[in-house]
Design a protein around this nucleic acid. Structure first.
Lengths: 344, 344
DNA sequence: CGCATTGATGTATGCGCATACATAAGCGAA
DNA sequence: TTCGCTTATGTATGCGCATACATCAATGCG
């Protein structure tokens, strides 16, 4: 337990951060050698390597990634912007994306942008200030300012959850409007006389809905009452949506296209509470095929999107870009599937 | 020797990155004035400020936060480790935490640790290498190595989702064992003759369950069959759990304590599929009071925890620590509430 | 045996910014 | 007028690391 001589008996000590310099001093080598030992051990002799590792162990040294990033201009950081952390749609994409990126040595800086697209620009700027190696954006509708910023950053950009023929850089998604069309055609085939929609306050949900309405009205005449919330979807909103349709819009039965399974679930609950039969009185089409949708009473007819696959695909094209410097498959349309179950 | 600067050949070079130096040159000031203009505009004359802002606008300059963090030893970065991004329990805590921190100018580096506690250490090290201003950990059980690392980093540590009298630094949570006790006492008061448990593969779920079993057996004799999954909870697992209980464990009715509402939901579904009455044949107690729990058929009796409040409280004690240098309220027990509804 | 080659390590440098300190100019009171 | 104080700005420095380059010894080959 011998300590430095001449030390004051007081416990005052300076911060004395452990750096590669410190480690090197203990191991009897220079800072560079420590750096090499960590980044490419084969460049250091076995004997030296062992001493360095001992010193690291003894000091509990953790490399300063900030300094490393500044020096090398590589951060091993990916930043991602999602509308909501609690919405399973986004969190499951991020989960699979994050896992794959982590396995490749990257970390994820995550921010919520909420429903207001205008919030996005400031968040993008804040993210870019961290000098990430890439940025992941949700959706393909971004302000001119946002596009300019990410382009100027000169890093790969992946837009996820929505397909576009003209992405900023790369994209992985599906065509939201097509889901509305598919739902409308399904509803028409099934012969529902009346239709309505319930949507949460998100821009893509609105587009799915609009596509549903358009297509349906192209197939047959008739108004389509629409309930649009400007908040996130909850079960309570779904109940409320059906109530408004029934009580306020003169909707007396037919098919309802919901912008998410949660809303659809709420519709089911409200229908049951009112003694309405599903699908005879009220038919319901959801969106997302979330956990449990198949186990609702009746099982929910919905649009399935393989969210995990989106995350994986996004990670794959990104890693490929890192490796080759070229995007082999910059635009990926992973499609969707309408799952017909009991509710419609 | 020192003559590296001799080569000023053709000025045509790589895409010159925009730095404060660049901005300053355009605005006719030095780098430091640009820095001041951004961090404290009042220290710069109005005229100069305007020119700097014009230059920033013109160049699309985004400050390099990496360099700033290295120079100032402040990153405005908080790192957080959660078991799962898709579990609403964690994501809703992180959401409220992240929002409050963001309003205070901080960003969130998020990682999933999964169910295996051993994965945590490596992730913590990776996070600390980013030199965050604080670190948020889920739960209070961490390896000695993990404790050593975060302590050595010398930054505030908040443990969330679980209360401890001896946290690493600060904590915000509740006593998981107490929820098991409360459920057991509730079940006993209600007079259920038999009891069983279904748990997902997470350590805290196991402790809640163990506490339930212990307390129940202290109140009255009798075995308590236990189904333990080593995976995350899903509705399907809940169904499977009830099936196993019924078919494999000779459980022929009574109350079931589930480690999450999702599992409880699955039990409800399976019971319905089998024509079992709830709560007469099978009674169910969930955990979490998740969205929709009150709307299940029958409404779910469950344990409610205010997850958003945890996130907010964590942010508050952290921000307070930043401001004062002292933790005013380092240990916060936010408790829980047993909500008796129709399922038990 | 000479010289090129390889392996192991060190020295010098700067990434872009924040910070401490220095300087210059303007202004009012004694 | 002189001094001191304030305001506005500049200069110097280093955060901790990665990188280019330099050094030096050991080795190989003809």
């Amino acid at each position: 337990m011998a300590r430095m001589k001449g030390e004051q008996t007081t416990t005052e000590r300076k911060p004395q951060r452990v750096t590669m310099e410190t480690v090197g001093k203990i191991a009897g080598v220079s800072q560079v050698t420590v750096s090499r030992a960590l980044s490419d051990p084969s460049k250091v002799s076995a004997k030296t390597l062992a001493r360095i590792q001992d010193a690291i162990e003894a000091t509990g040294f953790v490399p300063n990634g900030v300094a490393g990033a500044l020096a090398s201009n590589k951060s091993k950081l990916i930043t991602a912007l999602v509308p909501s952390l609690t919405n399973i749609v986004y969190s499951s994409m991020i989960q699979s994306f994050g896992r794959r990126m982590r396995d490749a040595g990257y970390q994820l800086l995550l921010s919520e942008t909420g429903l207001d697209p205008r919030e996005e620009d400031a968040t993008i700027a804040a993210h870019l200030s961290r000098r990430p190696d890439a940025i992941l954006l949700t959706g393909v509708h971004h302000s001119a300012q946002a596009r300019r910023m990410v382009l100027a950053a000169g890093i790969p950009v992946v837009e996820i959850w929505e397909y576009s023929d003209t992405p900023i850089d790369m994209c992985v998604g599906f065509r939201h409007a097509d889901t509305g069309h598919a739902a409308a055609e399904f509803a028409h085939r099934k012969g529902y006389a009346r239709a309505a929609t319930i949507s949460a306050g998100d821009e893509r949900a609105r587009r799915r809905k609009a596509a549903f309405v358009d297509r349906l009205q192209a197939l047959r005449p008739g108004a389509v009452p629409q309930i649009d919330f400007d908040t996130h979807a909850t079960l309570a909103r779904g109940r409320e949506g059906l109530s408004q349709l029934l009580d306020g819009h003169g909707f007396d039965g037919g098919v309802i296209f919901c912008s998410s399974d949660i809303l659809a679930n709420g519709v089911l609950v409200e229908a049951q509470a009112r003694g309405l039969r599903v699908p005879q009185d009220i038919a319901v089409i959801g969106f997302g095929d979330q956990d449990g949708a198949a186990h609702l009473e009746p099982p929910l007819t919905t649009i399935r999107v393989d969210r995990e696959a989106f995350g994986r695909a996004a990670a794959d094209i990104l890693l490929d870009r890192f490796k080759t410097g070229e995007a082999a498959v910059p635009k990926v349309d992973l499609g969707f599937e309408l799952i017909a179950r009991g509710s419609a």
